[in-house]
């Protein structure tokens, strides 16, 4: 039975959450390692999105009115809690809008250069 163990590793000050799968004896294959940088104790930027809806989908909304500077994810992509989804320029700040939870991006509702109002849905997670 392969067992998956999770580790938190800090490299050059960046925290990575790593899953390591133990493949057992008789195999020379290296353990599969999936690494994605996470920002330690990232507070969710969009508290509304956290509540989730009945279907289990979470809508990540713009917490501030602003300009979409960059979209960091595509539909279908798997994201970890705390991963940056969108950079939203507002209040003269490049705000990182992060995933409130682990999930899969089911829809990206904005693109680079869009102006959004507070409460507009940016990304839908499942």
């Amino acid at each position: 039975m392969p067992t998956v163990r999770r580790f938190r590793i800090t490299i050059n000050g960046k925290v990575y959450e790593v899953e390591a799968e133990e493949l057992g004896e008789g195999t020379s294959e290296p353990s599969r390692v999936v690494a994605a940088p996470v920002t330690a104790s990232a507070p969710p930027v969009a508290p509304k999105a956290q509540q989730g809806s009945v279907s289990g989908a979470a809508q990540v909304e713009a917490p501030l009115p602003g300009l979409v500077l960059d979209v960091k994810v595509d539909a279908g992509q798997t994201v970890d809690a705390g991963q940056v989804l969108v950079i939203l320029e507002a209040m003269k700040m490049e705000n990182e809008i992060v995933a409130p939870d682990n999930g899969v991006v089911s829809a990206v509702r904005v693109s680079k250069g869009d102006n959004v109002s507070a409460g507009d849905v940016l990304v839908v997670l499942e």
């Binding site: 990232a42 507070p43 930027v45 917490p63 501030l64 507002a90 209040m91 003269k92 700040m93 705000n95 990182e96």
Partner: peptide, 9 residues
């Protein structure tokens, strides 16, 4: 203030 949330407003 926390600049990474709501720009620290």
């Amino acid at each position: 203030n926390q600049p990474r949330v709501l720009a620290g407003t």
